[in-house]
């Protein structure tokens, strides 16, 4: 368990966190959850771009990333039997 750094996260660290979110999002087996995770991450990073306390936002993001990666495992155990109509390409 890493200790949350007191100094503000660097630009590279924030982008890395964002990339980790998108990577975790891809792991969800269910189309809706996959797209939601991606959308939620994108919205949150945009919303917090000028946030006054980047440390707290970054720490929160890290915690949420852990939740997401745990949930990706849980969801993979209950994968939907059918694909969503949204991911069927003809």
């Amino acid at each position: 368990m890493s200790v949350v750094a007191a100094s503000a996260p660097s630009r590279a660290e924030v982008l890395q966190l964002y990339r980790s979110f998108l990577r975790v999002a891809r792991k969800f087996t269910d189309y809706n959850i996959r797209e939601y995770t991606k959308r939620r991450a994108t919205d949150a990073f945009r919303q917090n771009r000028n946030v006054s306390d980047p440390c707290a936002a970054f720490a929160d993001g890290k915690a949420q990333l852990e939740v997401a990666s745990r949930q990706a495992v849980v969801y993979s155990l209950y994968a939907p039997k059918l694909k969503s109509v949204m991911e069927v390409h003809n």
Partner: peptide, 10 residues
């Protein structure tokens, strides 16, 4: 912006 660049690379 940089977030979009991350998305494009993904």
């Amino acid at each position: 912006d940089s977030l979009d660049a991350v998305e494009i690379v993904m």
